[in-house]
């Protein structure tokens, strides 16, 4: 079989076979990459997002193959490439943030600093992760507000995931009066933490005198809780500690300062006078 038969222009039968081969190979490579991506990311990315990403990658591979076959078909792609370059530049500039968000979204999916349902703090917003989309991340704040943060921002900012680890340490500083018994206060606080069903036995809670402050003896209280429970326990125990200490005659003092005068103050006692009645007409 003569493969040098000219079909049209300078294109021979061999060229046509090469073109078809390149296209078939490109399609196979595209399909293989898409399939692998779908398999490896199926648990990490939503179905519809994954479909869009794989389609886009497949289209890019076919486009590269198409550019490769143009010279074989006798078409000079340089003019086309220049035009495509300009078009790409314009589109790139116009959609800079869109592409940035998209790329950040892909990296977020790969890195997975958070997942749906986690409690996080991103860009100063605290709440539950509702969705990690390809362009943006959705957070429902504790007061129920829907917040959409572009992925570019999410990716470049600090993310605090409050529940990634199974347990979390909470701490308070409780100030008591100097005349109160700090040892007794420590025993009472330890007892409250031990009795609470959600606080963890291990790692062991720590309660100790941390500092002799200006107005109070400061007791440091540290204990661990299962991460999802950190907020209700934190809220409940602080008040429980305060009220139980008070029930035992131990109080949180007001800020106070003792002032000493070098010389005894000279003064006169002013009699407490009742305010005179104002007669109304």
């Amino acid at each position: 079989m003569n493969l040098d038969i000219i079909l049209f222009g300078n294109v021979t039968l061999l060229d046509l076979i090469v073109v078809v081969l390149i296209l078939v190979i490109a399609m196979l490579i595209g399909k293989a990459i898409s399939l692998n991506l779908r398999r490896s990311l199926k648990d990490k990315v939503k179905k519809e997002h994954l479909r869009s990403v794989t389609k886009m990658i497949y289209s890019i591979i076919i486009l590269i193959a198409f550019i490769l076959i143009l010279p074989i078909l006798g078409i000079d792609p340089s003019g086309l490439l220049v035009a495509a370059g300009f078009l790409g530049l314009i589109i790139g500039l116009a959609s800079q943030s869109v592409i940035g968000n998209l790329v950040a979204g892909i990296f977020l999916v790969i890195e997975r600093p958070m997942k749906v349902g986690d409690q996080v703090e991103v860009e100063g917003k605290m709440g539950y992760v509702e969705d990690v989309r390809i362009m943006s991340t959705i957070i429902r704040t504790y007061d129920g507000v829907f917040v959409r943060i572009p992925n570019e921002k999410v990716f470049t900012t600090n993310i605090s995931n409050l529940v990634t680890h199974v347990a979390r340490r909470l701490e308070y500083t409780v100030g008591i009066r100097y005349k109160d018994d700090a040892d007794k206060a420590v025993i009472i606080i330890k007892g409250i933490i031990d009795k609470h069903p959600i606080t963890l036995k291990n790692p062991e809670p720590m309660v100790f005198v941390k500092e002799l402050g200006n107005s109070s003896v400061d007791i440091m209280v540290r204990f661990w809780v299962p991460s999802p429970e950190w907020y209700p326990v934190r809220r409940e125990l602080l008040w429980k500690i305060k009220t139980t200490l008070e029930e035992n005659g131990i109080f949180v003092p007001f800020p106070q300062r003792e002032v000493w005068f070098k010389n005894e103050l000279e003064g006169r006692l002013i009699e407490d006078k009742k305010p005179s009645k104002v007669k109304s007409k």
Partner: peptide, 18 residues
């Protein structure tokens, strides 16, 4: 009596009823 504890490390351990 109700109490929880952690078995293992904070990273990778499991919360258990104690």
């Amino acid at each position: 009596k109700q109490k929880l504890t952690l078995y293992g490390e904070v990273r990778g351990g499991v919360i258990c009823k104690h």
